[in-house]
Structures are given as C-alpha cells and as structure tokens.
C-alpha cells in the first residue's frame, strides 16, 4: 500500500476542524491557558463560524456580534508539545480479513498514519513502536515534517507475522518511556485480557495517556457465517466445529462481554478505549474518537 493512501484529504480536513490538542487535553484547555499542567501547551484562534443551537454560548464572540449583529462562535486550534507513540501490534491475527477490503492491520496503519499526520501537523513529536512478543522496532518521536515521511515509510513496510504478547510489550514500553507521553495502541487484543489490563495500568501509573484502539475484523464482531463451520486459529492452529447460525448470538454476546471488560476497566483507569471494526470507515473511527474526547472534556 502506498504511503499517501493513509493521507486522504477528507480525513485530514475533518481532523483539522476538530483539533487533536483541543480534544485530547480538554481538562488542560478548560482550566485555562494560564495554568495548564502541560508545559508548552498553547491555544490559537482559528476561525469564526455562525452560531448554531447546541454550541456552547460561552464560545460566542461578542465583539463580532457587536460588529455584525450576528452570533459567531470562536473556534480554537489546540497545540501541544505532548509526545505521542503509535504502538502497532504485529501479530499474525492482525492480518485477518473475512470480507472487508482492509484487514485489521491495514486498517490500524491507516488510522495510525492519520493520527501521525495530524500530530505532526500540530508539530507534536510522534514516534512509532511495533511489537509482537516484545517490542520489535521503534521510531523515536520527532515533530519535524520529515518524521512523517519516515513514519509512513516504516508503517508501509510492516507485516503481521507470528504470535504476540501485548502485555509484555506494554510493560516494556512503560519502562522505556522517560517522559509522560500519549500512547496510542492498535491491537486486536486477542489474548488473555488480565495481563494486558495490568500492563495498561502500569502505563497509566507512569502518568501516560493511553488510547487503546481495539481493532477487530467485521467478521469477528458480527460472526456472519452460516451452517456448520470448522474454525481454525491461524496462530496456534487450534480448531473448533460450530453451528454458526446457532452460535452467532452467543458469539456476539461474548465479544460484547470482552469489550465491556476493557471498556469498564479503561473507564476506571482513565484509558481511552475505542472499539473498532474494519467495516467502519477509518476516518469516521477517528472522528468518533475525537468527538468522544471532546464530550469527555
């Protein structure tokens, strides 16, 4: 896949309209520019737009109202110097796709590239870490424009192979980080959840912000099969016979239960958990995340 595939203009446009910084650290933004707990964090006026019901009346620019006799809302573009890490799961299961044009891995890369572009556009340093059983490669975070090229180049060369140990890799990263960072993890999390949750807690313990993009294939979410199926795990070659139709409900309930486990834990521990599947347009997934960030703010 070419590197610019991840940089679709409509995605970038939507991200620009909803500033990552503004959405990410709502708390710092709302506490005022003067006492931001994050050093180097700035807010710049970006544009006016007409007030529409539902907007925060606090955002109304009264000066503009005095001039034009119309309500205009001030929009801001957040800037931060927070270091971001894109953490990409290289497990073989990430390469799975049943009927979607993108597998989980491609989808994750697309998403990661979008975020990287956005962050570099905000001149935030962003780095890349890949892992399977442990961390394989890491690209140190930088905010230069050239970093984007390097990052995308590396991303495009990645191949999902072998088994994975998400918890170990996160623990490893926690130890490696020297400053508080924003860790964006892209994984299907098809491992035992408890160690992973422990590792996330470890990451949070060091003051890092974590966004967990839980990427599953659309088939893994809705279980679209019919009839008798022999299902084989590509990583350990285990297999099972199931009656797909009869099992679908149970399966979907199980997936939901799994997601809820993460969702509840992440909520409690301040991790942003974003369940995704490959049927969702990746830009929409990004948007959904940012909206959610904003709502949380």
């Amino acid at each position: 896949m070419a590197a610019d595939t991840y940089l679709k203009p409509e995605v970038i446009n939507q991200i620009k309209r909803l500033d990552l910084r503004a959405q990410f650290v709502v708390r710092g933004f709302m506490q005022g520019l003067h006492s931001s707990p994050y050093q180097g964090f700035s807010v710049e006026f970006s544009e006016h737009r007409k007030y529409t019901p539902g907007d925060d009346p606090a955002d109304i620019d009264w000066q503009a109202y005095a001039k034009t006799d119309k309500y205009y809302v001030k929009k801001f573009e957040a800037e931060t110097n927070i270091t971001g890490f894109l953490m990409m799961d290289l497990s073989e299961s990430m390469g799975y796709s049943y009927r979607q044009s993108m597998n989980k891995f491609d989808y994750s890369i697309c998403l990661a590239a979008s975020l990287a572009y956005l962050m570099i556009g905000q001149q935030d340093p962003v780095g890349l870490i890949t892992f399977d059983q442990k961390i394989r490669e890491s690209l140190p975070p930088k905010s230069k424009r050239s970093q984007l090229g390097n990052l995308l180049s590396l991303l495009s060369q990645l191949k999902p192979t072998g088994t994975t140990d998400v918890a170990n890799s996160i623990h490893q990263l926690s130890v490696m980080l020297k400053q508080k960072s924003l860790i964006m993890i892209f994984s299907d999390l098809l491992v035992e959840p408890t160690p992973v949750l422990d590792s996330l807690l470890h990451l949070r313990h060091h003051g890092n912000d974590v966004i967990l993009f839980h990427v599953l294939d659309e088939a893994e979410v809705v279980f679209p099969f019919d009839g008798m199926c022999r299902l084989e795990n590509p990583e350990n070659k285990e297999f099972l016979h199931v009656d797909a139709v009869g099992f679908r409900k149970d399966y979907v309930a199980e997936v939901e239960s799994f997601r809820n486990t993460y969702r509840e834990f992440c909520f409690k521990s301040g991790v942003d958990y974003v369940p995704l599947d490959t049927s969702m347009p990746f830009d929409q997934a990004l948007l959904q995340y940012l909206l959610k960030r904003r709502l949380r703010g």
């Binding site: 795990n233 590509p234 099972l240 199931v242």
Partner: peptide
Amino acid sequence: KPRHLIFPALQFVQERIQSNQSRL
C-alpha cells in the same frame, strides 16, 4: 461437511462452545 474457515478470534468461540455443542 463443515466449512473450513480461518478465524483468529477463536477465544470468543471457546468461551461459549460448550452450550453451543449441546444445542448443536
């Protein structure tokens, strides 16, 4: 004649397979 499918999320299947097998 079951269909042969690759399916990484087998762990979700394993969790509920017991009741499904009875029903099957």
